[in-house]
């Protein structure tokens, strides 16, 4: 039994279809519990008032925006090294989810920033890095869409993802250097004295877990779609070949 068995599209489809209902339900449950808990059963912050509660959308989506790219990096590497088609298709499936997460993080950030900083947008390093990440996502998706041959597309996008990751990290540091910003420090971290208070962090954890499960569910679902699309494409090509 090894994880590579799931590189077989059939096996992957069969397994994910079994776990899909659980994933959908548990992510929906976690997100609703987390959001209801966060929105209605936490106190207002003494400085930020009730605006602070957007954190329950902002932080989980920002988390997934970065981790989606990280997942694409890993699956791209698996494709480049082991050439498992499911891996490449999973990377393709994750990109639109990642771009939406990035967009949610940017929009909720703007909505939060308006009352707090008095502006919708500032060229703060964190905000700017997310905008750059958004551009990377767009380029990656556009390249997938532009190429007909699926294997070529998988190869090219994988290399773009690898090179892009390096440049994304570089951009992060460049942007930090370029402008020290307004954004507060990380809301949650393991080694910091001052974190978000427990009343806020507990529902936040629930929301984050919900977003992680939602992301996994969406990626499984979309990968299944990609696999079927690939299969149809292959069958059509095969018919042409036989004719």
């Amino acid at each position: 039994m090894s994880i590579w068995e799931y590189a077989n599209p059939k096996k992957f489809l069969a397994t994910t279809e079994r776990v899909m209902p659980t994933l959908w339900i548990s992510s929906a449950a976690l997100i609703s519990v987390g959001l209801v808990w966060g929105f209605f059963f936490t106190p207002d912050d003494y400085r930020q008032g009730s605006t602070v509660k957007i954190i329950f959308l902002h932080v989980p989506s920002a988390l997934m925006a970065i981790n989606a790219w990280f997942m694409m990096l890993v699956t791209s590497l698996v494709w480049v090294i082991r050439r498992h088609h499911v891996s490449a298709l999973a990377a393709r499936a994750a990109a639109p989810v990642g771009v939406v997460m990035t967009l949610i993080a940017l929009v909720t950030g703007a909505i939060w920033g308006q009352p707090m900083w008095g502006t919708w947008w500032a060229w703060d390093p964190r905000l700017t890095s997310f905008l750059v990440l958004f551009l990377f996502y767009l380029g990656y998706i556009a390249l997938w869409e532009a190429i007909d041959n699926p294997d070529t597309a998988a190869d090219l996008t994988s290399i773009l993802c690898l090179v892009g990751s390096v440049f994304a990290v570089l951009s992060r540091y460049a942007v930090n250097f370029w402008n020290q910003g307004l954004h507060q420090g990380a809301s949650l971290s393991l080694d910091k004295e001052e974190n978000v208070a427990d009343v806020f962090s507990n529902p936040l954890y629930v929301c984050m877990a919900g977003f992680v499960l939602l992301f996994i569910a969406l990626v499984f679902y979309r990968t299944g779609t990609e696999i079927r699309a690939r299969r149809i494409k292959a069958l059509i090509a095969r018919e042409r070949l036989e004719a």
Partner: peptide
């Protein structure tokens, strides 16, 4: 010769 139809593995054919 095209491979058997139900044998659809990593290569999708």
């Amino acid at each position: 010769k095209p491979p058997a139809l139900d044998d659809f593995d990593g290569g999708f054919l």
